[in-house]
Structure formats: structure tokens, C-alpha cells
Computed example of a mutant assay.
Amino acid sequence: MGVINYIFQDKQANIANPTKGKYVVVLFRISQLIVKRKITKILFFWYLLFYRVVVEYFMCVELSWHTAIGPNFAIWHGTGLVIHPETTIGSNCNIRQCTTVGVKQIGNGLYGNAPKIGNFVDIGCNTVIIGDLVIGDYVAIGAGSVVVKPIESNAVVAGNPAKFIRLLNH
């Protein structure tokens, strides 16, 4: 995949996105590209600093360039978004504002693993996904949900704690 194609691999998912999230995704992909290549990391450290200041501090989106995210990723609005650097997110996923995807403390000051999110997952606003869990493919998570257990594929879940609502028709 060429540099331009890599940077814009999420373009299709963000065509109808009128929010700043589509710009955050492009800036994220550029930072990922720089970090993957050691020489560019040295030459473009200024960009990584720019990314940290603009995206994390001004736009309030904590999205590390170390996070593994598949193509066609969309962030809707984005403010208050926190995604742990060790999180894995599949392709064709949507995530909305005020969402946290992270680890939980397992005792003695130690933390567990980050969530693994499958393909075609739609995450509503104000959602919390915490802990060493797997979210399957084709999942819709309702706004305001707290996910602390794995979610099977083809499911719609919502609530605190998130509970199965119905199968997803796709």
C-alpha cells in the first residue's frame, strides 16, 4: 500500500462525516506512518509533537499512533474520546464522542490487557469498554453502555452493564 493510500484508507467511511473526527483519523494515519519507519520518526518528530498537542490537547482525542486499527475507521465528533494504545480495532468500525476503551486494574497496581474489537462494530456515544475482552464482528453497542464482558458477533447490546438486546440483521 502506497503512502497516500495508507493515509486515506478511511476516506470511504468518512465521506458523509461532517465532524472533526475525519480529520483526526487522517492525522492519526500520518502519525502511524511516521512511527512505523524509524528514519521518518527522527526526521518528523515535529509532526508527532504537533499530533500530540493538536489532537490530544486541543481536540480532546487520546488516540495513540500505536493503536492497531483496520481500514475504514470513522470517529464521529470525537471529543472526550480515549482509546488505550494496546487496543485492537478491526475494519469498518465507527466510534462516537465521550467513549473510553481501556484496561482495568486487576490488583496490586497492575493492569490487564486492552479490549479487542472486531470488524463492523458501531459504538455509541458515552460508551465505556473496559478490560481484557473481545467484541465480535457486526456488533452495535448502544449509547451510554458499559461493556465489561465479551460480546458475541452479530449482537446489539446496550445498558449498564451492557446486555444482549437482539441479533443484528446485516
Score class of each variant (00 low, 15 high):
I4T: 04
I106Q: 04
V35E: 14
Q105C: 11
A162V: 05
L49N: 11
K116C: 05
V82A: 04
V103P: 00
Y51E: 07
V134G: 14
T40V: 11
G159M: 01
I34M: 01
K116E: 05
G112C: 01
I165V: 12
P115M: 00
V54F: 14
N160H: 04
I151D: 00
D137K: 03
A162P: 03
A68S: 14
V146Q: 01
W76D: 01
F8S: 07
Q32A: 07
F50E: 01
G131W: 00
N17Y: 08
N154H: 14
A140C: 13
G109Q: 09
I165N: 01
Q105R: 09
T79K: 13
C125N: 12
G112S: 03
Q105M: 11
F45G: 08
R166G: 10
R52Y: 13
R96C: 13
G159P: 02
Y6R: 06
I69E: 04
I117L: 07
A74K: 08
S31R: 02
P18S: 05
V61K: 05
Y6C: 02
L48E: 08
N113L: 10
G78W: 02
A68T: 14
G142A: 12
L33G: 12
S153K: 12
V3F: 13
I42H: 07
T79N: 14
V101Y: 04
V24R: 04
H170T: 13
G142P: 10
C60G: 14
V24S: 06
Q97P: 04
V146W: 00
I89V: 09
V25S: 05
R29I: 02
H77C: 14
T88V: 13
I129P: 00
F50A: 03
Y111F: 15
Q12F: 12
Y6M: 02
L167C: 11
N154W: 11
Y111L: 15
A143L: 09
M1F: 06
E152D: 14
H77Q: 15
I15W: 06
V101N: 05
N94V: 10
V35M: 15
F28A: 01
G78A: 06
V26S: 00
I151T: 02
L43E: 10
L33K: 14
V101L: 13
T88E: 08
H66L: 12
S153D: 09
A140W: 06
V3Q: 10
C93K: 00
T88G: 04
I130E: 05
K20Q: 15
T99G: 00
E152V: 10
I130S: 08
G136D: 02
R96V: 09
N14F: 05
R37D: 12
I130H: 02
Y23A: 13
N92M: 03
F28T: 01
K163E: 13
Y111M: 15
V54P: 08
N92Y: 07
Q97E: 09
K41P: 07
I4M: 06
V53D: 14
R37L: 10
I130N: 03
Y23K: 14
S64H: 05
N14S: 10
N160P: 01
M1Y: 07
D137N: 12
A13F: 08
I4Y: 02
V147T: 03
N17P: 09
T19E: 02
V103L: 02
G90Y: 00
T127K: 01
V156T: 08
G109I: 10
S91L: 07
G109D: 09
V139G: 04
V157K: 03
H77N: 15
A155S: 15
M59S: 11
V157S: 04
G131Y: 00
